[in-house]
Simulated scan of single mutants.
Amino acid sequence: MNYLKTGDREAILKKKRVVVKVGTSSITYENGKVNFRYLDHLTRQLADLKNRGLDVVLVTSGAIGVGLPMLGFHKKPDFLPYKQAAAAVGQGALMNTYEHLFHEYGQAVGQLLFTKGDAVNSKRYLYMRGTIQALLELGAIPIVNENDAVSADEIKIGDNDTLSAIVASVAEADLLIILSDIQGLYTKDPKSHPDAELIHEVPAFSRELFAIAGGAGTARGTGGMYTKIQAAEICVHSGIDMIIAKSDEKEVLLRIMDGEEIGTLFRGENVHPQLKKRDIIIGTAVKGKIFVDEGCRKALLEKGSSLLPVGIIDVEGAFSDGDTVAVYFEDQELARGISHYSSEDVQKIMGHRTEGLSEALGMAAPYDTVIHRDNLLVMR
Rank of each mutant, 00 (worst) to 15 (best):
N2I: 05
L4V: 07
T6Y: 10
E10I: 12
E10G: 13
I12W: 13
K16N: 14
G23H: 12
T24Y: 00
G32A: 11
L42W: 03
L46Y: 05
L46E: 00
D48V: 09
L49P: 00
K50P: 05
N51M: 09
G53C: 08
L54M: 12
V57S: 07
L58I: 05
G62D: 01
G65T: 10
L71Q: 02
L71P: 04
G72W: 08
G72M: 01
F73Y: 15
F73A: 03
F79Y: 15
Q84F: 04
A86C: 12
V89H: 07
G92D: 04
M95R: 06
Y105C: 02
V109S: 02
L113Q: 01
F114V: 10
T115W: 06
K116W: 09
K116V: 12
R124H: 14
R124S: 14
Y125P: 06
G130I: 03
Q133P: 03
L135P: 00
L136I: 01
E137Y: 07
L138V: 02
G139R: 04
A140S: 15
A140R: 04
I141K: 09
V144A: 07
A149C: 11
D153G: 11
E154V: 05
E172S: 14
L175T: 07
S180N: 01
K188I: 05
D189E: 07
K191A: 15
A196N: 08
A196M: 09
L198V: 06
I199D: 02
E201I: 13
F205D: 05
S206Q: 11
I212S: 12
A213R: 04
G214Q: 11
A216W: 02
G223E: 03
M225K: 05
Y226A: 15
T227E: 10
I229P: 14
I229G: 13
A231N: 11
G239W: 12
I243K: 01
A245M: 02
A245H: 00
A245Y: 00
S247D: 11
E251S: 15
V252S: 01
R255F: 10
D258W: 11
T264Q: 04
L265A: 04
R267K: 15
N270F: 10
K277S: 01
K277I: 07
D279H: 13
I280R: 06
I281N: 08
I290N: 08
E294N: 00
C296F: 09
R297L: 13
E302I: 03
P309R: 03
V310K: 10
G311W: 01
I313Y: 02
G317T: 00
S320G: 11
D321I: 09
T324P: 15
V325M: 03
V327W: 10
Y328I: 02
D331N: 15
S342Y: 01
S342H: 05
S343L: 08
E344Y: 14
Q347N: 13
R353A: 14
R353I: 09
G356L: 06
A360D: 00
G362L: 05
M363W: 12
A365H: 03
I371A: 06
H372W: 03
H372K: 00
R373S: 10
D374P: 12
L376H: 05
L377M: 13
V378L: 15
R380V: 13
